[in-house]
Design a protein around this nucleic acid. Structure first.
Lengths: 333, 333
DNA sequence: ATGAAAGCGCTAACAA
DNA sequence: TTGTTAGCGCTTTCAT
């Protein structure tokens, strides 16, 4: 009786059997109002809370009502928005969320996936860091949904942006403003998303692509790459940046050399305060909240027993013209 | 055998007793190498993973190696940074993190705190939404640490910024640049943090405060309040904004009426891209990563049995001059 | 060094 | 309607 009270303590206090307490706690109807009241009083006076772990151990459905979410980094805005949407969907169902940041580390992806599974999470939502998810094939009984990036070597529901169409739209937008030499600055090409965005870029430009820089990683690298690009003899008149941080790095570079009003820029993925910069940055916005919701919905369907083939859910992007993408090409003189 | 393998399945496969498997799995030394090898082989071949819930149920230390973290909103950058720092500290100890967003809803705070406790989390880190945490006094055996905001009606370790000193420093910075009419725009005064920042403002200005607007909530309200302030006869020459979103709202207002180069601004709490705005925004930066780490460290100390009186841990802020706060007062003409 | 029995807190299956 | 018994997967205690 010194530690937390158990069902047995409640039973003793209420003068009923253990099972009667269980019935009341679980809202089974077949209990006399009189007894139920006594049980509830005992629960109240002892401040008894059922032990979910113990109950789940014995229960037939074996649900922990807990899911695991593996994100790139819970501190970045995109991951944060995904996380929040998943949390909201989970809350509607009384499910709690375990999270972990992967930092592009595939070892951590495997470790965390295993650890969460070992905690009997009812399912997993994964924004993959590694380039091989085949280790998940042993995860029988734990539904998995991928988000933001498609998996390799393992099939499951996947929620991703319309990367090709979004990138192509961005580049066509620049073409419509008179640009012909449009540069591409993109993330690691080993990532499917980066490849897709590059594909969209190529698609929009037909067979006349501009200068291309792949495998740009992070803001600082993007700033450097942009500066290098603009010093070239065939310097582009417009930039298409394939990712968040690359866009910000490019903005820094343009401001630094005073070309922010003359070189056009469209970035893939929106970011906070993009509309407050000078000029405001035109982006292809992804919709992380919709993506998170879609991923959670898909996961819960699977948890509820849906058993169809893997689905690919594409979430449309939105071009948001704000200024930087509408800079027209300087008239030849 | 159709579901996940249990320790018993492993024992049968390896031809040893259940307890021997338990010993091997838990790394107890007293097992013959020969038997240990057989057990490990069986574990491997069955892909056996111990059931953490079951083990924790029987174990003496009763640790789930899971903590709960209640934040304002996992999607906002400050909460995200806190969360990430806590996650990193937890990972060092093999602990996993359950999170929940409170959205300033005190009901949700109580519900989630209870729910996490019911899941036997080893401890809780709470950024309180409500103005009364006395319900936590029933949470015996579950250590709690507060972060970002102090609790009311319940004593526990608390990690907060040096709000008074930070705010006073910001205002003195403006005074040093010639300003005398410095406005204060602050969050809900029922929040201790908002009150502290206001106190710092008053402290720096002695008994000659400028125009004050309290209870500004959100970006849009801040923009409106700023516009109203600047239309007044005694319009301030400088603004001190007591919170993130208020700062951004003020920036919008200043840009909109073209006063961003003439009215000085210092904001409490840094935000992404503040340095890319025009002018770059001077802020009193908080250090959410340090705060999260400090909160996690304090919590783990408590979990490990430390039993001293509640501690208040203050994390120093940093004034980051970027431009907006160094605008000098326009010479009288 | 190994194993058998008991039991963590709870629910399923069955009985009264 | 209520209670009894068994047992979820594991660790403890105590015997061998």
């Amino acid at each position: 009786m010194s530690g937390k009270p158990t069902m047995n303590d409640v039973a003793r206090t209420a003068g009923v059997s253990l099972k009667t307490v269980s019935r009341v706690v679980n809202g089974e109807p077949s209990v006399t109002p009189d007894l139920a009241a006594r049980v509830r009083a005992a629960v109240e006076s002892l401040d008894y809370r059922p032990h979910l772990g113990a109950s789940m151990l014995r229960r037939n459905d074996r649900r922990t009502r807990m899911i695991g979410v593996l994100l790139e980094d819970v501190a970045n805005p995109f991951s944060g928005a995904l996380h929040r949407a998943i949390e909201d969907a989970a809350r509607d169902r009384g499910v709690h969320v375990l999270t972990g940041s992967l930092d592009e580390d595939e070892q951590r992806e495997r470790d965390l996936a295993r650890a969460f599974r070992q905690r009997q999470t009812d399912g997993l939502i994964v924004a993959p860091a590694g380039s091989d998810q085949s280790y998940l094939s042993r995860f029988t009984g734990t539904p998995i949904v991928f988000v933001d990036r498609p998996p390799s070597g393992f099939g499951a529901d996947t929620v991703v942006s319309t990367n090709v169409a979004g990138a192509a739209g961005a580049v066509r937008h620049l073409v419509a403003h008179g640009h012909r030499r449009i540069a591409f600055l993109g993330d690691y090409q080993r990532r499917a998303t980066a490849r897709e965005r590059f594909r969209g870029y190529l698609q929009a430009l037909g067979h006349r692509p501009g200068p291309v820089v792949h495998d740009v990683r992070g803001e600082v690298a993007a700033e450097r790459a942009t500066l290098a690009l603009l010093r070239r003899a065939d310097a582009p008149t417009a930039l298409f940046t394939g990712q968040n941080l690359i866009t910000i790095g490019a903005v820094r570079a343009l401001q630094r050399i005073g070309l922010h009003q003359s070189i056009a820029l469209v970035g893939f993925d929106d970011f906070p305060l993009a509309d407050l910069l000078d000029p405001p940055v035109t982006v292809v916005a992804q919709h992380p909240a919709r993506m998170g919701r879609a991923a959670a919905d898909a996961l819960f369907e699977r948890i509820d027993g849906h058993n169809g083939p893997p689905r690919e859910i594409r979430v449309a992007t939105t071009l948001i013209p704000r200024g930087s993408g509408e800079i027209r090409i300087a008239p030849a003189r």
